[in-house]
C-alpha cells in the first residue's frame, strides 16, 4: 500500500535547508521529507515546479522567489464545524512552509503560479543573466 508523505513538524523545518542540500543527492525514495513534495523540471528558459495541495485555494497559497530561493507557504481554513465527530482524521496538513534552492536565479517578477484541482504549477523564468551565460555553439 502506498501512502503519500505527510507533513513534518516545525522543528524540522529549521533543518530543511540542510535537508534539501542532502536530499538533492539522494534517490527519490529517500527524498520524501517535507510537505509539499515537489516535482521539478527545467527547459532552456524556465524552471517548472509542481506540488499537490488538495483543498488549498488560490488565496490560501503564497509563493515567493528571491534569487534562487523558492518559498511556498499555505494555510487552509479548517472546515470543521461544531457538533462533528471525527472517526478518522488523516488530512492533517492545514499549514505549511517550504523553501527550496533552485539551480538557477529566477526572474521573480515573471513567476507564474496556478492551482487547479489541487495541483499547484509554477513557471519560473531564469534570469537574463542565467540565460546569457548559456553559450550557443554553432558550426564553424
Amino acid at each position: 500500500m502506498l501512502t503519500r508523505n505527510r507533513l513534518f513538524s516545525s522543528p524540522l523545518a529549521l533543518l530543511q535547508g540542510d535537508f534539501d542540500r542532502l536530499l538533492n543527492a539522494l534517490p527519490f525514495e529517500m527524498a520524501r521529507a517535507t510537505f509539499p513534495a515537489l516535482n521539478v523540471w527545467e527547459d532552456a528558459d524556465r524552471v517548472m515546479v509542481e506540488a499537490e495541495l488538495p483543498g488549498f485555494r488560490n488565496e490560501e497559497i503564497d509563493v515567493s522567489v528571491v534569487g534562487d530561493q523558492l518559498t511556498i507557504r499555505g494555510q487552509r481554513t479548517s472546515d470543521v464545524e461544531e457538533k462533528q465527530t471525527f472517526y478518522r482524521r488523516e488530512r492533517t496538513t492545514t499549514e505549511f512552509e517550504r523553501t527550496v534552492t533552485l539551480p538557477y536565479e529566477i526572474d521573480s517578477e515573471k513567476v507564474d503560479a496556478t492551482i487547479k484541482d489541487g495541483v499547484l504549477t509554477l513557471t519560473l523564468p531564469k534570469t537574463e543573466a542565467v540565460r546569457a551565460r548559456r553559450i550557443n555553439v554553432r558550426n564553424g
Binding site: L2, E52, T85, Y87, R91
Partner: peptide, 27 residues
C-alpha cells in the same frame, strides 16, 4: 499505473456522515 490510498477524514454530523478524501489532480 501506480495506485495510491488517499488520506481521508470521516466525520459524523447530525444527519449525515461525510467522507473527505484528498485526490489532487482529480476532476
Amino acid at each position: 499505473r501506480v495506485r495510491f490510498t488517499p488520506a481521508v477524514d470521516i466525520i459524523e454530523a447530525a444527519d449525515e456522515f461525510r467522507l473527505i478524501a484528498d485526490v489532487p489532480g482529480v476532476r
